[in-house]
């Protein structure tokens, strides 16, 4: 399925004020992959996503979606393929009800109103908020807003989902919901985040960006357990891979393997607390 491939070749980009935000980036993303893009604040993650979406155009190099180069001309077609969820859902939910918002995209592609409705309901069901369809955005919780924003992109039926910090500002429960949601998508996914545990859970491959350049590109497990690499890029090991704060052992796939065999109830409680 080569038409789902996204290819970035020798990408360069500077902001109008001269700041070089992206320097010589190259990578390819294949159909069905889930990619986490991580890096410190200001590393250039959001900028990279904007270049993929054709919001900005590169100063050098190119972005190919399928075999099509992202240019002004090919934008309408590219944007039907790629769906992007913004960091602040308030920017994305610009209509007065959830339904109108989710319908905005399909309507722009001049679908029949029946098709629009079907797509809207499908998208809302997918993210689990069909009951909120007539709500005003300001009446949604942070997690619900995020879900609505994701639905507004899903209704366009993109092949690739691109998300900027999908779990920032969410409480643990809402975060969990969004993570489960992300895991349930079969789309090709590109996710930027500082929430490395979320990235570890939802992405198989990781690209680390440092000052506009790719510092590493590899499997999630390899990169996220490489403490030196992460430190040098202004990041830390994900919590779930850090040493147990109680007894200093590393956490395995199923939690910490503690040296002490805990018998009494008190300690058991403590153990439960230290997990996640």
């Amino acid at each position: 399925m080569s038409h789902h491939k996204i290819e970035v070749r020798n990408l360069y980009f500077s902001y109008p004020d001269g700041h070089k935000a992206i320097k010589n980036m190259s990578f390819s993303i294949y159909h069905g992959e889930s990619i986490g893009i991580i890096g410190a604040n200001g590393a250039g993650k959001s900028t990279l996503l904007m270049l993929l979406m054709g919001v900005y155009f590169p100063d050098g190099g190119e972005v190919l979606v399928g075999d099509v180069r992202v240019t002004k001309k090919t934008l309408p077609m590219i944007r039907q393929r790629l769906g992007m969820v913004f960091q602040d859902p308030d920017d994305q939910l610009f209509m007065t009800t959830v339904y109108e918002d989710v319908a905005f995209g399909p309507r722009n592609y001049k679908l029949e109103e029946e098709d629009v409705e079907r797509r809207v309901m499908q998208a809302l069901e997918k993210v689990g908020i069909p009951h909120l369809k007539d709500r005003a955005p300001y009446k949604l919780s942070g997690g619900e807003k995020r879900s609505a924003a994701i639905a507004s992109v899903l209704s366009m039926q993109p092949d690739v989902l691109i998300m900027d910090e999908p779990t920032s500002g969410l409480d643990p429960k809402s975060r969990r919901r969004v993570i489960d949601l992300l895991k349930s998508f079969e789309h090709t996914k590109i996710i930027t985040s500082h929430d490395l545990d979320m990235v570890l859970e939802t992405c198989k491959r990781i690209i680390v960006i440092k000052k506009g350049e790719i510092a590493a590109d590899g499997t999630a497990v390899d990169i996220l357990s490489n403490e030196d690499l992460l430190n040098s890029c202004g990041l830390e090991l994900p919590l779930s891979l850090q040493k147990c704060p109680v007894c200093g052992t590393s956490k395995g796939k199923f939690g910490y393997i503690h040296e002490k065999i805990v018998v009494d109830k008190e300690a058991k409680k403590e153990l439960r607390l230290t997990r996640e």
Binding site: R79, F86, D91, R107, V116, M156
Partner: peptide, 22 residues
């Protein structure tokens, strides 16, 4: 914010026309 809202609209196919439902 206006800039970001514009981008969000644009990414969902907005080209200066507003299509309402029936």
């Amino acid at each position: 914010r206006a800039e970001r809202v514009y981008q969000a609209m644009n990414l969902r196919g907005f080209t200066g026309e507003y299509y309402t439902g029936d």
